[in-house]
Design a protein around this nucleic acid. Structure first.
Lengths: 120, 120
DNA sequence: GCCTTGACCTGGAGTGACTCCAGGCCGGTA
DNA sequence: TACCGGCCTGGAGTCACTCCAGGTCAAGGC
């Protein structure tokens, strides 16, 4: 498939995909006889994983390490697992942030309700 | 209180606080006779709110609108409430992202377990 | 056969939200 | 008096994109 389809299916913009390829997070994508990128299903799976990792706050440096482990083959599975476990940790922290923010918001909204209540 | 204390209590770095003041998200902070910023308790409450809004993904443009409503006084409470409600929406979306990512991760981790299981 | 359209290419500039730093001032301590 | 720590300002640097100019190529319409 070409870049527009890979973009639609992975969630990453075409620009971001090219940028990721340049930075080595995505392996060099095969080209057709026309010089355009042709994405394999494995490429797409990789992009989709990156999309979710990035969207939930994994920094690029870490994705680069992850990608380099990936390129080194199955022997690096333990290291890759560690990175993903670390990311799960991060998800926990984010969840806690969301909960804390929710509290702050409902406190603020309640204060607004009181003001509105007094005015009307 | 001075900037280091405001930073420690709000969660924002001193640099970020100064940056926010420059961009008008934080009102001009009063200065002592030495020319240093002196933060009032209200200043601190505002900073803390900004910290949580920003940390959970409110863009600066929106915080600017929020700040400008705030400067216009109580008449803008409904608009401010709308912005906060919109942000609550965003929190929901983030939560969904986290959940989806969690799924992707556990799928990947399970695949790693299978590989490791076969190897040993 | 030619022209237009649209998807893609590259290299490079621009953006958002910080973050860091150089160079300077000031009040307190040894 | 010399130094130190905390603060100041203006400006440069960073990260992770995002946008754009200028160009190629294949397919469809006239």
């Amino acid at each position: 498939m070409r870049i527009s389809e890979a973009s639609a299916k992975s969630g990453l913009s075409a620009d971001t995909i090219r940028y990721y390829e340049k930075s080595g997070i995505v392996p060099p994508i095969a080209r057709g006889p026309d010089g355009l990128r042709r994405f394999s299903p494995e490429n797409l799976e990789w992009l989709t994983l990156l999309y979710w990792l990035r969207k939930t706050g994994m920094p690029m440096k870490e994705m680069q390490r992850f990608a380099s482990f990936y390129r080194q083959g199955e022997a690096t599975v333990p290291q890759r697992r560690d990175l993903l476990l670390k990311h799960e940790q991060r998800l926990q922290e984010r969840r806690a942030d969301l909960a804390r923010c929710e509290e702050v918001l409902s406190y603020k909204l309640a204060a607004y309700d009181r003001i509105e209540g007094n005015r009307s």
